[in-house]
Computed example of a mutant assay.
Amino acid sequence: MTTTASAPGTSPGIETGTAPTAPGDRDGLLSRLGRLQSRFPVAQLFITIAAFVFGAATLNGFASPNSVKTVLILSALVALAGLGQTLVILVGGIDMSVANFLVVGAVVVTQLTVTFNMPFGVAVLVLIPTTLILGGLVGWVCHRFEVEPLVVTLAMGTFALGLVQVQTEGMIAGGAPEWLMALTSLQSTTFGLPIPPILVIWALAIVVMAVFIHRTTAGRRLLVTGANARAAQYSLVKVRRIWVVVFALSAMLAALAGIALAAFSGTVNTSIGGPYLFQSLAAVIIGGTALGGPGDYTRTVIGAVMLTVITTVLIGHGLGEGDQQILSGLIILVAMVIYGRGRKLSDRV
């Protein structure tokens, strides 16, 4: 009698074939995709590419070199405004003073340099310690008295803007010098390469932030503080110092981003930083960085690019500002729903 050869582990005479995918296998695939998304914002990157391809197919010149550089410059401004916001959100706070510190930075390098005949370098040297002190005070007050950062940052941003208005006698309206505007000009080059300097600065910021957050002791302490402040204290991490440093850096980085914003806008007024508060916060949230973590600046970068590409495509198709805000709000809600379902770091640390 002839028998059919069988594979190891199967009964003789029984033909084997490809088994249908079991529900457990599908669940395993979804679980693996979820873990991948938790490590890197794959979905946001896919949406960004899809939006860019759609724009290139439906808008004339959208994929041209100058158009791409414009989108990158706009993304850089949003992402640079979100530098400090990312750090603050990683420790579980929120910084609502970003808009006003953007204005402070822009005014100091455009108006105060003229008013007091101050060289640009000196103005920046004055700006850095001043904003560090004001931001650090916010972090100390929030942690020492357990006050919501939203309230304190709003107050400090108003105070900082008022401090500048006193120096300018209540007038905040000026123009950036041409050499500063070259920082974000499409025609500008960097070391002979057709790349605007702002993009090189942004690339350096991305590298520095990645190294700081993931490769330094201070960065790991920051992440531990955001994950579980009590556990961090038991690990001898000086939580209050982390809060002071993070809010100090947020104020300073927002003020420095204000210099780039002044270069891009060409003119400075009290409302110049308003849109970037929402956009930078949206970039952080859309990128997938949650209050207290997990997250990093790379996610903010992808969120900023995604937001800018979608907004640019919408404007190209004639959608108004209200429509853009509605869509941005929906994107943020979806992002919050997706990332809000995961376990918080405080439950894991």
Rank of each mutant, 00 (worst) to 15 (best):
Thr3Ala: 15
Pro8Ile: 13
Gly9Val: 11
Pro20Val: 14
Gly28Asn: 14
Arg32Gly: 05
Arg32His: 10
Phe40Ile: 04
Ile47Arg: 07
Ile47Trp: 05
Ala50Leu: 09
Ala51Cys: 01
Val53Ala: 11
Gly55His: 01
Ala56Val: 01
Thr58Asn: 11
Leu59Arg: 08
Leu59Lys: 08
Ala63Glu: 06
Thr70Arg: 13
Val71Asn: 09
Leu80Asn: 04
Gly84Lys: 10
Ile89Gln: 00
Val103Phe: 02
Thr110Leu: 04
Val114Gln: 14
Leu132Ile: 11
Leu132Val: 08
Leu132Trp: 04
Leu137Val: 14
Glu148His: 13
Pro149Leu: 09
Pro149Ala: 07
Leu150Tyr: 06
Thr153Trp: 03
Thr158Ser: 13
Ala160Tyr: 00
Ala160Ile: 02
Gly162Met: 09
Gln165Met: 12
Glu169Gly: 07
Ile172His: 03
Trp179Ile: 04
Thr184Leu: 01
Leu186Gly: 03
Ser188Tyr: 08
Ser188Pro: 03
Thr189Leu: 09
Val200Trp: 02
Ala205Ser: 14
Met209Val: 05
Ala218His: 10
Arg220Gln: 13
Arg221Gln: 15
Thr225Tyr: 02
Thr225Pro: 02
Tyr234Ala: 10
Ala254Leu: 14
Ala254Arg: 10
Ala255Asp: 10
Ser265Gln: 15
Val268Ala: 06
Val268Tyr: 05
Asn269Met: 11
Asn269Gln: 11
Ser271Asn: 13
Pro275Tyr: 13
Phe278Asp: 03
Gln279Glu: 13
Ser280Phe: 04
Ala282Arg: 00
Ala283Ile: 01
Val284Cys: 01
Gly287Val: 00
Gly288Arg: 01
Leu291Gln: 01
Gly293Arg: 01
Gly293Gln: 03
Asp296Ile: 03
Tyr297Leu: 02
Gly303Trp: 01
Ala304Gly: 08
Val313Thr: 09
Gly320Thr: 02
Arg341Ile: 00
Val349Leu: 13
